[in-house]
Simulated scan of single mutants.
Amino acid sequence: MNETIETILEHRSIRSFKDEPLTNEQVHTLVKAAQAASTSSYIQAYSIIGVKDQEKKKKLAQLAGNQSYVEKNGHFFVFCADYNRHHAAAEMHGTSVKETTESTEKFMVGLIDAALAAQNASIAAESMGLGICYIGGIRNDLEEVSDVLQLPDYVVPLFGLCVGYPAQDPNIKPRLPLENIYHVDEYEQNPDAFKEGLRKYDETISAYYSDRTSGERTVGWSSLMAHKLTKPVRTYMKKFLKKKGFPLN
C-alpha cells in the first residue's frame, strides 16, 4: 500500500481547526490539484469560490445551519456547477449553448465535474497534513448563498469545503461492508444476504457511536437512514435551479 492510498483510507471529517489561515501558495496548490481532476469532454463545468472575508464566512456558517467550523478554519471553498463561462464563449463565436446547458445531462456534468475536482483538492489537502470537511448545509438556502457570493445565472453553489490544520483527531467512521457496495457483473438482489450485511454493519456503527458518545448514542446505520430519509429536505431546489438557468430539460 502506497502513501496516497494510506492518505485516502485514513480520511475523517474535521470539525475543529486551529486558528491558522492557509497561505496563498497552499490555496493555489489545492486549486491546481482540483483542476487536475478528470472533466467530461474537457468542459470543466465548475468554479471554486475561496471565501476569506470573515463576515461572509460568518453568514455562510449561519446559512449552513450554524456550523461554526464554516467560519473558523484555514480556508473555506465553495464548489459550484458553472456554465457562465460557456455562455460567454458562445457569445465570442456568435453561437448559443442555451439549449444544451439547460439539459439535465449537462447539469449532471457540472455536478460530477465539481465533485471530482473537490475530491482531488481534499486528497491533496490531507496529503499536506491538513484536515477537511464537506459542507452540504450551504444548500439550505441557495438564494442567500448566491447573494453572498454574487453568483450570476448558470452558476449553482453545490457544497462547501472547510480546510485547515486539525484541532481534533476523531476516529475513522466505518464504511459499509464491501459486499454491500461492490457488485460483480450484475446487481446483487438477494434480500436476505443484503440485509444480513446491513445487520452486521449496524453492530459496527452502533459500537462506533457508543464509543464516540460514551454510550449515549447506540443507533445503527439502517435505523439512522430509515428515519433520516422519511422526510424530504430542500424541496425548493427545482424552483431555484430553474431560476438560475437550469430548467433541466
Rank of each mutant, 00 (worst) to 15 (best):
E3T: 07
E3R: 02
E3V: 00
T4D: 00
T4R: 03
T4S: 08
I5D: 00
I5S: 03
I5C: 00
E6A: 12
T7N: 02
T7C: 06
T7V: 08
I8A: 01
I8W: 00
I8N: 02
L9E: 10
L9N: 08
L9V: 04
L9P: 00
L9A: 07
E10F: 06
E10G: 02
H11T: 07
H11P: 12
H11M: 11
R12W: 09
R12G: 07
R12E: 04
R12V: 10
S13V: 08
S13Y: 13
S13I: 09
I14K: 04
I14H: 04
R15V: 07
R15E: 04
R15P: 00
R15L: 07
R15W: 05
S16W: 08
S16M: 08
S16D: 11
F17C: 11
F17Q: 01
K18R: 15
K18N: 14
K18V: 08
K18G: 02
D19W: 03
D19A: 05
D19F: 02
D19Q: 11
E20A: 13
E20N: 13
E20D: 14
E20V: 14
P21V: 09
P21I: 00
P21E: 13
P21T: 12
P21S: 14
L22S: 04
L22Y: 01
L22R: 00
L22K: 02
T23I: 06
T23P: 01
T23Y: 01
T23M: 03
N24V: 03
N24H: 08
E25G: 01
E25W: 00
Q26S: 01
Q26F: 04
Q26I: 03
Q26P: 00
V27E: 13
V27Q: 09
V27C: 09
V27R: 12
H28M: 10
H28T: 02
H28V: 00
T29D: 03
L30P: 08
V31H: 07
K32C: 08
K32G: 04
K32F: 07
A33T: 13
A34N: 09
A34C: 14
Q35K: 13
Q35W: 11
A36W: 10
A36S: 15
A36K: 09
A36T: 14
A36V: 02
A37I: 12
S38A: 15
S38I: 09
S38H: 09
S38E: 08
T39N: 13
T39S: 15
T39M: 05
T39P: 05
T39V: 12
S40A: 15
S40K: 10
S40W: 13
S41F: 10
S41V: 04
S41Y: 09
S41E: 05
S41P: 01
Y42S: 10
Y42N: 14
Y42R: 11
Y42E: 05
I43F: 15
I43Q: 14
Q44H: 15
Q44C: 05
A45Y: 11
A45N: 11
Y46M: 01
Y46S: 04
Y46C: 01
Y46A: 00
